[in-house]
């Protein structure tokens, strides 16, 4: 089973880019945007009901980040971890303000950009749509752990820091989340044994 290719790398000159951005350098912040927009989009994609909303919130995250940049303290956390927190809050805010009750059946089809073949794109599109639907059956924390761990490639330790929990708690949460997701996807223990 291949692990995620989206390892949570940190830009080598991130500290300098952040400092310059905090000083008002828009170009430096645009470089940070280029580096992290995909990860933020993926994080949000699996937390909301449709692609358009995922795009809107992704865009909003970077606008908010620019406005709140002076509150970020390099060294206390990575810049991407700070962006994840803004993204998480933005998703929560969207649910609160819009009181979204969007049914997944009503949402737009998932548009996947992928460099592989058309068949692969279709497969990925289908699976991502299924996953998004299944993930919405999980608790907020379970969704966060699975997306951060398996889709965005954070380690258990990094997720623990992100969510303010102990690594042991994250491992237990991860197991319960996979258990729930397997049941929702129909790939639970019973189903696995039937294969």
């Amino acid at each position: 089973m291949p692990r995620s290719t989206a390892s949570p790398f940190t830009l080598p000159d991130e500290f300098d880019l952040v400092r310059r951005s905090q000083g008002g350098d828009a170009q430096a912040f645009a470089t940070l945007y280029d580096a992290y927009v995909e990860r933020i989009y993926r994080y949000i994609f699996f937390r909301v009901a449709d692609d358009k909303l995922a795009e809107d919130i992704t865009s909003l995250v970077f606008l908010k980040a620019w406005e709140k940049l002076d509150t970020y303290r390099p060294g206390t956390s990575t810049f991407i971890a700070w962006l994840y927190r803004i993204a998480h809050n933005a998703v929560i805010d969207e649910y609160r303000t819009r009181k979204m009750t969007v049914r997944l059946d009503d949402t737009q089809p998932t548009e996947i950009h992928h460099e592989d073949s058309v068949d692969d794109q279709i497969d990925l599109q289908f699976e991502a749509g299924q996953l998004r639907q299944a993930l919405r059956e999980l608790t907020e924390e379970q969704q966060q752990v699975l997306v951060l761990k398996f889709i965005n490639g954070l380690s258990t330790q990094q997720i623990a820091e992100q969510l303010g929990k102990q690594p042991g708690a994250i491992r237990a949460l991860q197991m319960r989340a996979l258990q729930s997701l397997a049941r929702v996807l129909g790939t639970g223990e019973d189903e696995a044994n039937d294969r």
Partner: peptide, 27 residues
């Protein structure tokens, strides 16, 4: 076996990317 199979499905979704059009628009 069940949990790892589910994890593998999730990891495949890590290849998901926003469209270039969206990235350019948002930028």
């Amino acid at each position: 076996r069940a949990y790892l199979g589910t994890a593998a499905q999730l990891e495949k979704a890590s290849q998901l990317r926003p469209t270039p059009a969206f990235k350019a628009r948002a930028r």
